Each structure stands twice: as structure tokens, then as C-alpha cells.
Simulated assay, not measured.
Amino acid sequence: MIHIQLATTGLIACLAGLAWIDARSMRLPDILTLPLIVAGVLLNVLVLGTPWASLVGAALGYGSFVAIEIGYRQLRGRDGLGRGDAKLMAAAGAWCGGWLLPLIILIGSVTALAFMLTRAMIRGKTLDSTQAFPFGPWLALGFLAGWIYRAYGPGLYVAF
């Protein structure tokens, strides 16, 4: 259990850093996202004993967001997601497994939408579909919720 607690502490620190950087610069740097992928795979191999769940989750997380990025660009003629978001989702899949990716995306999307709507209402403005905003902080929140569910079980997750 001590390994899980140390991993969780490191994950929180890394996700907080990524969220802060993305909120300020609209970038998720490789120097943090790529080691996070490796750490998730190693944790699953050495501690949790689920290497395939980690590898499949990383591939699904990255692949699905790259597909969304490319599809959006082709449909709208502009970027919607960045590769940093795809790498963060690869890390989420590596840590949590592929089956939790829909929950992670749901939490990230709902919290991002709630924040953007609240901010627009406070400012007395409407949402503009061309305005870019960082998605990484919200994906990081979903990632953390998914990891807590995976590592500590649904009983602790429901307590939040």
C-alpha cells in the first residue's frame, strides 16, 4: 500500500504542475507528460501486476485524442486539441487502464464546461466557439479521480 500512496503523491504533484503550466501557457510539456506515461506503465507492471491494462490504456488514450484532434481539424479547419492533451490521456490510460478513460474524459469535459459557462455568466458574456482554453487542467482532474477510483476503490471515491 505504501507504493500506491507514494505514487499517488507523485501523481498529484505532477498533475498540479501540468494543470498550472497549461492554464498559464496552453501547453502540456513533454518533460512532464512522457515520464508520467512511463511511470504509469512501470507502476502497473511492478506493483499492480496489470501490464496489459496499462499498455492498452496508454494506446487508447493517445490514439483516441489524436483521432479527435485530426477529425476536428479536418471538420473545422482549425486546431481543437493539442498533442499534449493526447499525451496526458496516454498517461491517464497508463495509470488507470483503458476502461476508466470514458470516466476521465467525462469528468474533464463536464468540469471544463461548467467552469467555462460559470465564467461566461460572471463576465456577462456568451461562450465563443472560436475561443481557445486549456483543457489540461480538467483532464488532470478527471485523471486524478480515475486514479483514486482505481487505486483505492469505489468506497473512497464515493466519499469525495
Rank of each mutant, 00 (worst) to 15 (best):
P51W: 06
Y157T: 10
L88G: 01
W52N: 06
L101N: 05
V56M: 11
S129Y: 02
Q131L: 14
V158L: 15
T9Q: 08
K125Q: 14
A23N: 08
L156N: 09
G93Q: 07
L103W: 10
L6W: 14
A140N: 04
I122A: 03
G40V: 06
S64I: 11
L6C: 10
R83E: 03
Y72K: 00
T126E: 03
A151H: 13
L36W: 00
F133R: 07
L144T: 03
K87P: 02
K87N: 07
P35D: 13
M1T: 12
I105M: 09
L75D: 00
A145F: 10
Y157V: 08
I122V: 10
G49S: 05
A159W: 15
V158W: 15
M1F: 10
L103E: 09
K87S: 08
T50I: 02
A86S: 12
L36V: 02
R76M: 01
L117F: 11
D128H: 12
L103F: 12
L113Q: 06
R24W: 11
R119N: 09
L36K: 01
D85W: 00
W138Y: 15
Y149Q: 10
N44V: 08
I68V: 13
L81V: 06
L156H: 08
R76S: 00
L42F: 14
V66W: 14
A58Y: 09
L55Q: 03
M89C: 10
N44I: 08
P51T: 11
Q74E: 02
A90V: 06
T118P: 07
A145M: 13
F135V: 02
P29K: 13
I68H: 00
A13H: 06
G17E: 07
A53F: 04
V38R: 04
G40H: 04
S54L: 11
I4W: 08
Y157K: 04
S25H: 14
L15G: 06
G146H: 07
D79T: 09
D128I: 12
D128E: 14
G98T: 07
F133T: 09
P137R: 02
W95H: 06
A58E: 04
W95R: 02
L42R: 07
L156K: 10
G61I: 02
L101M: 10
G10R: 13
A13K: 03
A53E: 12
G61A: 05
T50Q: 11
